[in-house]
Amino acid sequence: MDWQLLFLSFGTIFLSELGDKSQLATLSLSGSSAAPKYVFIGSAAALLVASSLGVWLGDSISILAPTRLLKAIGAALFAFMAMRLFMSDSSNFS
């Protein structure tokens, strides 16, 4: 078992999920629910399915394209999103 990869993926996903809209939706649903354990089961299952889809797509795409190209595309997409955030009109946030 590749423990380094396991902890790297756990840490990356855990930190990126903190405070995002899915966590806020789960917080809202569990706060207004009489059975928060079902909210937990539903949200955990949704994250599992979404992560499984990501792993499956990543594995499938990696067969067609080299890893270096996939990393470059991912980096370019993140840079594009960051530039859009930095260059967005600040009047949208007030």
Rank of each mutant, 00 (worst) to 15 (best):
A35T: 10
A35V: 11
L85E: 14
E17A: 13
S33V: 05
P36E: 07
I41V: 14
T67L: 13
A35L: 13
L24V: 08
V39Q: 00
A25Y: 06
A44V: 12
G31D: 04
L15N: 09
L70N: 01
V55W: 12
A45S: 14
G74I: 02
F78N: 02
L15H: 02
K37Y: 09
A50G: 02
L47T: 10
S16C: 11
L48Q: 07
L47M: 10
A34Q: 13
L48V: 12
F86L: 14
S33W: 08
F86M: 09
A79Q: 04
I63T: 11
Y38V: 01
S16T: 10
R84C: 10
N92E: 11
F93W: 09
L8W: 01
A44F: 15
G74T: 09
L70T: 04
P36S: 05
D59Y: 00
F80G: 02
G19H: 09
K37V: 15
L6F: 15
S94G: 08
I73H: 03
W56Q: 07
A44N: 04
S60K: 01
F80K: 05
R68F: 11
Q4M: 12
A65G: 00
L77F: 08
L8A: 12
V39M: 01
L24F: 02
A75N: 08
S62D: 10
S16R: 08
W3E: 15
S62F: 00
A79I: 12
F14Q: 11
S88Q: 11
A72P: 05
A75W: 03
F7G: 00
L29C: 03
S43R: 03
V55A: 12
F7I: 15
L53S: 08
F93H: 03
M1T: 13
F14S: 13
L70Y: 08
A50S: 14
S62T: 09
F40G: 03
G54F: 06
S30T: 05
L64I: 05
S32T: 13
L69F: 15
S94F: 07
R84N: 11
G58T: 02
F86I: 11
R84D: 08
S90V: 06
F93Q: 05
R84E: 14
L64N: 05
L15R: 06
K37C: 00
